[in-house]
C-alpha cells in the first residue's frame, strides 16, 4: 500500500490473548493527559477546605510530633546523636508520600470509572498521575525538613544531592504497588479495605520512628535482609543517609533487596495491568 502522508498508520482492534506489553509510543503521545490529570488532582485536592494546602504540612508534622513525644520521651530510642525530630521527619517524608500515593492510586481507576467506560486512552496514565500528584505534598514537606535541619543545626551533606534518586525509587515503589492494587481493585473491591490497613500498619513496621539498624543489630543480617523485602526500608534508609550524612550509611545489601522488590513489583504490576486492562470497561 502506498504511504499516504495525510493518513496515519493503520490500527487494528481485535481481541488480545495472553500477556500484554507496554506501548511506549502511545504513552508518549498521551504525556500531556498524564500531566493534566495530575494537575487536576492537585487543584482539586484541597478545594473547599479551610486550611487548604496547609494540610500537606500538618499531616506529616503532627505525626512526627506524636512520634517525638511517644518514642523520644518515653521509648528512649537510639538516634545515633542526630536530633530525633529530624531523624523521624526524614523517614516520615518518604513514608507519607508512599502511603498517600498508594491510597490515591489504588483507588484511582475505580474513581475514574466514568472516563474508562466512555473514552479511550492508555489506562496506565491514571494510577501514574495519581502518584505524581502526591509530589506536591512531598515538596512542601521537604521545605519543612530543611527548616527543621536548620533549626536543629544539622549540616547539609553532599549526599543530599542523591535525594532525587531515592525520591525516584519511592515514586517507583508507590507506582508499582499502585498499578497492582488499582487493577485488582477494578475486579475485587476488597482492595479498598486492605489499603488503609496496610498503610497504617506500614507506618509502624517500617523504620519511620526508629532506625533500621535497631533490627540489624538485634537480629543480624539475615533477618534484616528479609526485613528489607519491605521496599520502603531501603527508601527510608536512603533518605536518612542523604539528610543526616555519613554515619547513617544504609546497609547496602538491604537497600538492594528493597530495590529489587520494587523492580519486580513494577514489571509484574504493569504486565498484570496491561493484561486485564481490556476488560476494565466491562467489569468496572
Amino acid at each position: 500500500m502506498p504511504a499516504d502522508e495525510s493518513l496515519p498508520v493503520e490500527r487494528v482492534i481485535r481481541a488480545q490473548r495472553g500477556l500484554a506489553t507496554v506501548n511506549f509510543g502511545e504513552l508518549w503521545r498521551y504525556r500531556e493527559l498524564f500531566g493534566f490529570l495530575a494537575w487536576r488532582d492537585i487543584l482539586v485536592r484541597y478545594k473547599q477546605t479551610y486550611l487548604g494546602v496547609a494540610w500537606a504540612v500538618l499531616q506529616p508534622f503532627l505525626t512526627t510530633v506524636i512520634f517525638v513525644l511517644v518514642f523520644e520521651q518515653l521509648g528512649k530510642f537510639n538516634s545515633k546523636g542526630a536530633p530525633y525530630a529530624v531523624m523521624t521527619f526524614a523517614g516520615m517524608l518518604p513514608w507519607q508520600f508512599f502511603a498517600n500515593a498508594l491510597s490515591e492510586s489504588s483507588n484511582s481507576l475505580v474513581a475514574s470509572s466514568n472516563m474508562i467506560s466512555k473514552v479511550y486512552f492508555p489506562r496506565l496514565i491514571i494510577p501514574a498521575s495519581a502518584v505524581l500528584s502526591g509530589l506536591v505534598d512531598f515538596l512542601i514537606g521537604l521545605v519543612i525538613l530543611f527548616a527543621l535541619m536548620i533549626f536543629f543545626g544539622v549540616k547539609f551533606h553532599a549526599q543530599l544531592l542523591l535525594l532525587p534518586l531515592f525520591l525516584f525509587v519511592a515514586f517507583s515503589a508507590a507506582f508499582s504497588a499502585g498499578v497492582w492494587l488499582s487493577a485488582l481493585n477494578v475486579k475485587y473491591r476488597d482492595v479498598k479495605y486492605i489499603v488503609p490497613f496496610f498503610t497504617r500498619m506500614g507506618l509502624y513496621v517500617s523504620p519511620v520512628g526508629f532506625l533500621s539498624t535497631l533490627i540489624l543489630d538485634k537480629f543480624g543480617p539475615k533477618i534484616f535482609f528479609a526485613y528489607s523485602l519491605n521496599p520502603m526500608v531501603g527508601v527510608i534508609d536512603g533518605f536518612r543517609w542523604c539528610v543526616l550524612g555519613g554515619s547513617f550509611e544504609p546497609y547496602w545489601p538491604g537497600v538492594c533487596a528493597s530495590f529489587a522488590v520494587i523492580a519486580i513489583l513494577a514489571v509484574t504490576g504493569v504486565v498484570y495491568f496491561r493484561s486485564t486492562e481490556r476488560t476494565f470497561a466491562d467489569v468496572i
Binding site: 487494528v12 482492534i13 476488560t279 470497561a281
Partner: peptide, 10 residues
C-alpha cells in the same frame, strides 16, 4: 473502550 470477542476493526 472495550475489546471485541471475535473479529477485527482496522
Amino acid at each position: 473502550i472495550t475489546e471485541p470477542s471475535v473479529g477485527e476493526v482496522r
